[in-house]
């Protein structure tokens, strides 16, 4: 095991997987010569050549659209969207083709492609560099979505996504790219899709999150007098309901945290699952802590928008005091 940053763990996964399978190719804007604007793809072009680590034209729909054709020709494309906010043009291809192509061949063809992108705020970047658009992706039938919160999971979930026979979107919290570091297994490391993680054990209240908000929840747990359990969702689809509902059954209280805008966010889905399947386990309402239904603010105000450990702790106290 070596200590790595999350972005180095992503880079490690790409090296290991491309070494293992010669049909994997990485494509995107500035992924080759520059090694990616976050250095996630550094070294791949030198190691595997310009045909397997491709600097594409600046065209996100074109990247995903050609990836569909590359998959038809027998490749396993791993597409990088440079920022989540630049990924929106690719939603056209994702919704109209990627998520439904296998279905409309009656299962005859597979589209084992991966889309990876940085996500979220907290890095004081310019406008439209800090969104949290996971709900658009997870709402698309035929598409799976994973969001890691640790370097080890960033490596393992990306490896699982690349190996998965279905299209998978992996969103990497960019605020976690450089810190904290974490232990990352060497060589092949796969974290299966569809398995949540108990990031901290507790007895009185469950804090549910994914990505960067897992760390916010861990900090909030330290602020509480009560014992808080933190569930790291890891894979939004397929969702590990068993772990989620098991934790809620144990604590009887749930706070769901997302950085994305509140309305129709993935947190609402988590709340709905708990309400439908565990309401008799609950001792109080399920409370959400979320971003607001406004554009992600300029960076001088982003701390006013991104949920903080204080906001999460306050929500938890509300549920605990109910």
């Amino acid at each position: 095991m070596a200590e790595k940053t999350l972005v180095d763990a992503v880079n490690d996964a790409l090296h290991v997987e491309m070494e293992r399978d010669a049909t994997i190719m990485v494509m995107g804007e500035d992924v080759g010569r520059a090694g990616g604007v976050f250095r996630a793809t550094a070294g791949l072009r030198d190691r595997f050549g310009a045909d397997r680590c491709v600097d594409t034209p600046l065209a996100e729909a074109g990247i995903l659209g050609t990836a569909v054709g590359l998959a038809m020709a027998g490749w396993r494309p791993v597409c990088e969207m440079q920022y989540e906010s630049f990924s929106y043009p690719c939603l056209d291809q994702l919704i109209t083709h990627v998520g439904r192509y296998r279905w409309r061949t009656g299962g005859a063809m597979e589209f084992p492609l991966t889309i990876r992108m940085p996500t979220g705020g907290g890095v004081r970047a310019p406008e439209l560099h800090e969104d949290s658009p996971e709900a658009y992706y997870v709402h698309t039938p035929g598409v799976k979505v994973a969001i890691p919160s640790t370097p080890a999971d960033a490596k393992g979930l990306l490896a699982a996504a690349i190996r998965d026979p279905d299209p998978v979107v992996v969103m990497e919290p960019k605020v976690l790219y450089r810190s904290p570091r974490g232990e990352v297994p060497e060589g092949e490391h796969v974290v299966p899709l569809g398995r949540a993680r108990i990031a901290r054990e507790g007895a009185d209240v469950t804090l549910v999150a994914y990505g960067a908000m897992v760390h916010t929840c861990l900090e909030a747990a330290e602020l509480l007098d009560a014992s808080a359990e933190v569930v790291d969702i890891r894979t939004l689809k397929p969702l590990d309901e068993e772990t989620l509902l098991g934790s809620v059954a144990k604590t009887g209280r749930a706070v769901v945290v997302q950085e994305a805008p509140r309305v129709a966010g993935f947190g609402a889905e988590l709340v709905a699952v708990i309400a439908e399947k565990a309401i008799l386990d609950l001792q109080g309402p399920i409370v959400r802590v979320t971003g607001y239904d406004v554009p992600f603010p300029y960076w001088s105000l982003e701390h006013e928008y991104v949920p903080t450990s204080e906001r999460v702790a306050a929500a938890a106290r509300k549920v605990l005091d109910y």
């Binding site: 659209g65 050609t66 054709g69 590359l70 038809m72 020709a73 291809q93 109209t96 083709h97 409309r104």
Partner: peptide, 23 residues
Amino acid sequence: SITVPIATHVPHAVGYAWGARLK
């Protein structure tokens, strides 16, 4: 497969052809 939206299959054909050439 038959494409219903307009022009969204043009990149598919291009990707297929590019992928075949690479192979």
